[in-house]
Nucleic acid binder design. Structure first.
Lengths: 136, 136
DNA sequence: TTATTTTTGCAACAAAGTTGCATTAATATT
DNA sequence: AATATTAATGCAACTTTGTTGCAAAAATAA
């Protein structure tokens, strides 16, 4: 099974209305979105909030989106449009205290060396402050 | 007012029993601790959990400890023993999926350049996986 | 068209964290 | 040393985020 949606091709997971809608929202969004924010964008009563959580989980597993834990602890999701193929997600994320948006800064990948005894599975590089639009 | 406690000198905040105990726990700990973990170390019924949250907040304001948002969204706190004087907290934190500990790796400070339009206030560099003790 | 398997909705729950307010404790003042 | 002041605490109630089990519905496969 293989289905085409606006920007990308995906396989494996069932192609439900909820999945299509949520994926489309994330691919159109310039910023990372939380479950709550996705729900606010979806038409009222479109689907249950648990469904949104579950769809987001599956999209992560399929490497179509990635998870970012914001500095306030809330998880946000961003599309993998310009992410590296290896899905390390080492790029920086900026969280604006003012407008409360989280943005992927895919051009900035902080470099570091960790002793090889550490087995790295996930990276979450988060910087918060005031974003360019809010600071002018 | 100025009081001496085991490792450091602090000013300003009232020197309560709860504060002393919590600060001491954090200065003796090799790993970052959550509110829940601090509570488990304190003697049973030592103080209310809300008090722990509030003491932790105040210790952060006084730059005696720093906040780390773990990859699972839970906030942990670590002492500032070997932190830079500027309190940027740019060092890496490692979260072990296995033993669920978060450790400051103060010797590793990932480097990056962000356009100056971004006003940086907080840094949260988090890497998760398997720590050395769990991987052997 | 039917069988199979995944997805969804619902209700209930859990964990982390916050708030308001009255009481208590620390510090400052006299 | 006694009292006044202000900060810290306890308690109860609440909010938000996220999770789980299970029956019903929807996708896909046969």
């Amino acid at each position: 099974m293989q289905t085409q949606l606006s920007c990308i091709i995906f396989v494996c997971m069932r192609n439900t209305v909820a999945k299509q809608a949520i994926l489309e929202i994330l691919y159109k969004s310039e910023t990372a979105l939380s479950q709550t924010e996705v729900q606010q964008i979806l038409p009222q009563g479109f689907c249950n909030r648990v469904t949104i959580y579950r769809v987001l989980d599956r999209l992560v597993k399929e490497n179509l989106i990635h998870e970012i834990t914001n500095i306030d602890g809330v998880v946000k999701y961003a599309n993998c449009k310009k992410c590296n193929k290896n899905h390390s997600h080492q790029h920086l994320h900026f969280s604006c205290e003012n407008c409360n948006t989280v943005t992927c800064i895919k051009s900035v990948e902080p470099q570091f060396d960790l002793p090889k005894e550490y087995e790295i599975k996930k990276i979450n590089f988060m910087v918060s402050g005031i974003c360019p639009s809010c600071s002018r």
